[in-house]
Each structure stands twice: as structure tokens, then as C-alpha cells.
Nucleic acid binder design. Structure first.
Lengths: 203, 203
DNA sequence: GTCTATAAGGAGATAGAC
DNA sequence: GTCTATCTCCTTATAGAC
């Protein structure tokens, strides 16, 4: 009994440390990106040594994969939490809003759009691929529902809408607005959502 | 006279080689990105040795800067060539179309949006910065003209439109469509333009 | 499990021969 | 001006002491 308790506590502590490693990784990935993030960066940020870091994650690839998996879990959770009363388009909008706010708080985009290198690496991660496919299927369905109900443009191919939707989650305009305009976060989100669904042209 | 001729010929050959180096760099940047592009990649692709490459460009930073400057020159040239009969919005659309086609042909986006690291590097390049500011001023003016004539949404802040416009020139949806859909280039361009100006929602 | 120290390899940049 | 060979630094990853 006391052994179980001890193990459980140890496991908890281990899990907590892993979470803090993932937090650090998320922040560094958001600012420096994959290629420039070093294992030293991560270890130094949380005050452990590099070998200790490797006790938790067996490689940089593993560490980043785990980080992305956690992010995907967050997105899926958000999507599942949305009230059923929302329309398909409203759900898509709400999830995009969540993703934009995550980024504005120092998180990172959950699409590895930036680099073919990173994309290929993640595609070797079965856990990641599984979760991506599952989330993708849900979003694909939402897009098609929204098109059927004329909430989204039914003249556009579904994949054009879906890929453009993904692209908006990592739209660099967000960083530019955050850096160069005096706009607050709420206004940035509001405008990004409007641009996504209504476009740049006059209504 | 013959000396002048010889020098001029040498200069021409030099210029030609430099152009082919920039071509190679453009292609590699488009596929691998800055961080993963090595000077060996560039040298090998055009069949010269690395030291020869360094005779033309004194560093990787210099090489990439020169490549971006040439790309900016191309964009400015395109913009200046557009007939004066086009409206401000039509000019913006035509330039975006040009940028998308450049990317579909294996070129690269002309916004270093992907990486803060690359952006900072380019900002140290005075020639690059000068040309960016000049092009940016022209585009800013076009955006404001289009808003005044109600071709673009006047309710949106100008910088939201401008940054979103830049973002569309490097929209990752283009690569996804090119890779995963059977769509031809003309259709990709058409849809990307529509999504940019009209958004995802039903009209 | 944590650290110090280090191996192994990659990539920017250059020396020096031709 | 071009190449072969090399320097130097950085980064991933691990060996081995405690």
C-alpha cells in the first residue's frame, strides 16, 4: 500500500516535470522554431541538465512530437467542449479563435506548415499522425456541413476551405499586428476572424 | 577598347554566374527554408565548390539577402508594369496572383514570415530594408485607396488588411493544395484569390 | 536520476596549392 | 578564380561518476 502510494507520487512528480518540459518547449518553439531550438535551450530554461532532459524524452524529435501531441489534444478537447447548439461554422470559428488566443499568449500554431522538414518528422510520429487524422476528419465534416447549410461558400472545393482554415491558425499577420500595431488581443482576434470568413473586400 | 570588351565580357559572365547562384538559392530556400539550406547544397546544385561560392557572396547571410533583394525587385517591377487602368484592388489582386504563380513554379514567398531569426537577419541588410520599405509604401497606398473607394472593407484597420495581404502571398494552403489535391495551378490561384478577397463564408 | 565531461558529426568559413 | 583539405564552432546524444 505504501509502495503503491510512493510510486504514484513519484509518477505524479514525473508527470509534472514532463509537463513543465513541454511548456518550455512550447514557448521556445513558438519563438525560435524547430530548427533553432536546441536541447540546451530547453534544459537551461527549466534549470535541469541536458542528460536529465534525455531521461524524459529520448530525442529532440520525440520531445517536439510530444509537445505537438499535447497541443492537438488541447484542440480536440476544445472542439469537443463546444455546445451542440453552435452551427458548424460557429464551431469552426470558435476553434480558430481558441487557436489564435493560444498563439497570442505565447503558444504556437498547431500546423507545422512552415517547414517540410518538420512536417516529415512529425509524420513519422504515429501518435501524432493518428490524432491529426482524427481531428482533421472532424473538421472536414464541419466544413462540409457548413457548406451544405450555405454558411460557408459551397462553390469552393472543401479542401480549399479546410487548408485555408488551417492556414489561418498560423497566419503570420497575427505576429505582425501584435508587434507593429497598438491593437489589443481581443481586437486582433476579432479582425483575424473577420478576415478569415468575410475576406478583405467590402461587404 | 579590347580591354574594355574583355572586362565587360568577364563582368557579364560573372553576372550570369551570380544569377544562376541566385536561382539555385531560390529553389533550395523554397523547399528547405533558410535554416536547413547549406552552402554545400547551393554549391553542389550548380556544380561549383564552396570556396568559389564564397568568392561571389561573402556569407550565407549575404547570399540569402541578395536572393531576397532580387525577388523584391521582381515584385516591384511587376507592380510598376501593371496598366494604370486597373483599380487599386485589381492591382493588389494582380500582384498577389503573380506572387502565387512564382511560388507554384518553385519560387519562394517574399515575406520572411516564417522565422523571427530570418526576419532579423534580413533587417540587418540595408539594401533589403530599403526596398521593402519602398514596396510597402506603395502597397499601403493601394490599400488605402481601395478602402476609400469601398473596394476593400473600410471598417478594417489598414494594417490588418496589409498584413493579411502579405500573409496570403506565403499562404501554406498553396503547398497543401499542390501536394494533396489534384487541382491545377490556375484553379489553385483562382481559389486562393477568391478566399483572400471574399473569405470562406457564403456570399 | 542527476550531473560533468565528451564523443560524433554537421555546417559556416578559409588557407593554400594549382 | 577554382579546387582540396582543413579549421572552428555548434548541437545532438551519451558515457560514467555520484
Amino acid at each position: 500500500m505504501s509502495i503503491f502510494g510512493k510510486l504514484s507520487f513519484k509518477d505524479q512528480a514525473f508527470k509534472l516535470r514532463e509537463d513543465s518540459i513541454l511548456d518550455a518547449t512550447t514557448g521556445i518553439l513558438a519563438t525560435k522554431g524547430f530548427d533553432l531550438m536546441t536541447m540546451d535551450d530547453v534544459a537551461n530554461l527549466i534549470g535541469i541538465s541536458k542528460p536529465s532532459l534525455y531521461k524524459h524524452f529520448k530525442s529532440k524529435e520525440d520531445l517536439v512530437g510530444s509537445t505537438m501531441v499535447r497541443l492537438l489534444d488541447g484542440a480536440s478537447y476544445q472542439l469537443d467542449q463546444l455546445p451542440e447548439t453552435l452551427s458548424a461554422k460557429e464551431k469552426l470559428s470558435a476553434l480558430l479563435e481558441w487557436a489564435l488566443r493560444v498563439r497570442l499568449e505565447g503558444g504556437m500554431p498547431f500546423l507545422p506548415s512552415t517547414s517540410a522538414h518538420v512536417r516529415e518528422m512529425l509524420m513519422r510520429n504515429l501518435k501524432y499522425v493518428g490524432k491529426v487524422l482524427k481531428l482533421n476528419a472532424k473538421l472536414e465534416k464541419l466544413v462540409q456541413q457548413a457548406q451544405k447549410k450555405d454558411e460557408l461558400n459551397a462553390d469552393l472545393p472543401s479542401d480549399v476551405i479546410l487548408y485555408s482554415y488551417y492556414a489561418r491558425t498560423c497566419d503570420p499577420a497575427v505576429e505582425y499586428l501584435q508587434r507593429f500595431s497598438k491593437m489589443n488581443k481581443d481586437d486582433i482576434v476579432k479582425h483575424m476572424l473577420q478576415v478569415c470568413f468575410d475576406g478583405l473586400k467590402n461587404k
